[in-house]
Design a protein around this nucleic acid. Sequence first.
RNA 1: GGCGGUGUAGCCAAGUGGUAAGGCGGAGGUCUGCAAAACCUCUAUUCGCCGGUUCGAAUCCGGCCGCCGCCUCCA
Length: 496
Amino acid sequence: MGLKVYNTISRKKEDLVPREKGKISMYSCGPTVYNFIHIGNARTFLNFDMIRRYLEFSGYEVTFVQNITDVDDKIINRAREEGITPEELAEKYLEAFNRDMGEMGVVPPDITPKATGHIGDMLKVIEGLVASGAAYESDGDVYFDVSKFPGYGELSGRVLDEQQVTSQCGVEMERKKNPNDFALWKSSKPGEPYWESPWGPGRPGWHIECSAMSVKYLGVDFDIHGGGQDLIFPHHENERAQAEAYSPGGRFVKYWMHSGMLNIDKEKMSKSLGNIKSLREVLDEYKPDVIRMLMLGTHYRSPLNFSDESLVDAKASLERLQNCIFNLKDLLKRLDGSKVSMATIDRETELIDYVNNAEVEFRNHMDDDFNSAAALGVVFNLVREINAYITEAEEHRSPGAKLVLLESERILEKLCGALGLFQSSPEVAGLPSAHAGRKSETAPTLDEMMELILEVRQRARERKDFESSDAIRDGLLKLGIQIEDGREGSRWRLER
RNA sequence: GGCGGUGUAGCCAAGUGGUAAGGCGGAGGUCUGCAAAACCUCUAUUCGCCGGUUCGAAUCCGGCCGCCGCCUCCA
């Protein structure tokens, strides 16, 4: 069974057949760098990160291009507000964006073209469109003539006559032949950034940059074009019209993929409602994997309701997964000296089968249009099995235990990795391996300190001085260290 | 008005013809000095409502109701 993806333009799931065998070319609309990105933007970027990771997990060689819109009305306006130049503003928020993505553990795209670095490429396309009659100049602006592209509306499933004619800004309306025509080039007003063009100084319209840059780096008829669902119309519809009108007969994109919207407390995020939540704000309270877990829990095309409660739930479920990995590593650490032998008892061969079968099921779900929510279900079933086995293995150390545990660890980490979980930070919140064995000549390590503390606490427990032992445990918890007492002594881990 | 989506337990959420995954929360139990972690059992005879097709429907068809998004910048 191969990968299937839902293609917006056909409104169906289709077999993913890449243009070039074994390779995927994908483009996704990146940020307009005029502000910190919000949690809704983050969802889209995280979804495409999930998609990209899974494609690579499946063996594809992925070339991922994501643009940076660094010239646009919003940037100009915002720069005015902040009293800096548009260039400075774009630079500032591009840095913030990169920091956010880095913190979230998003794999950086292979190419991140900036609009301002590709004006020449855009002008070339615009000139071509004007020459072929698909676009026209009007008072220093250049518009795409929608009536010249018969396929207009196919992507978004719109019939233009049936659209509500909404109020558009007056000047533009006067210059357009048809209300649905859109700007390829806008003449600049005094004080705005501009580039020279055959139609005078101006700047590119928004849609043209994606058409020009995607084709420049990926060629025509590339595999996947993505973005948020709200970009289907007009942005992607327009991109498609331009690109296909520019190279007649050629298809622009093979598969259109759109990420579902995120709502806050069941409402759309909007300035007027004042409920815009930046990714930064959420990151101040929750670690990146909690946010990722929240996103993975809903299929990428479904609407996702974001709330404090949903974050709390996601955190708890992430912890369940983390605890399992922790317990696994902890037991393996204690089994360190023992040899790896073949599984002997039925229970063990059964579990190894279960673990390997889990990977098959996981892939089946992910192959079905990246159903991460269903795939997570498989992971959690696996967690329950592994946890149960850990308890058994603690009791009777059978020779095959180590093999089972190692195999469980391998698969569990593999599946988490495919989803992008636990990839952002060097340590999985205090896993034994993460803080083990780093000896310093000068300062004692946390490990060494904890060993001493736990030993002292153990003495207190042995003489039933629970007041002292509990004081140590409570005190450490306040410092972010969780103590757990088990049948083989106490262990600790860093709380996030 | 047009287009699209969606309605599954207290909450979140998979499931598109074969008899309701998973997570959170809740109840009880096991283990434990107590915690924590973990395990076990229970927590939707039923999938917005009404009809229809079918041996069989949450899944297909028709109608109705609710919610959301897009149609203007928007991930």
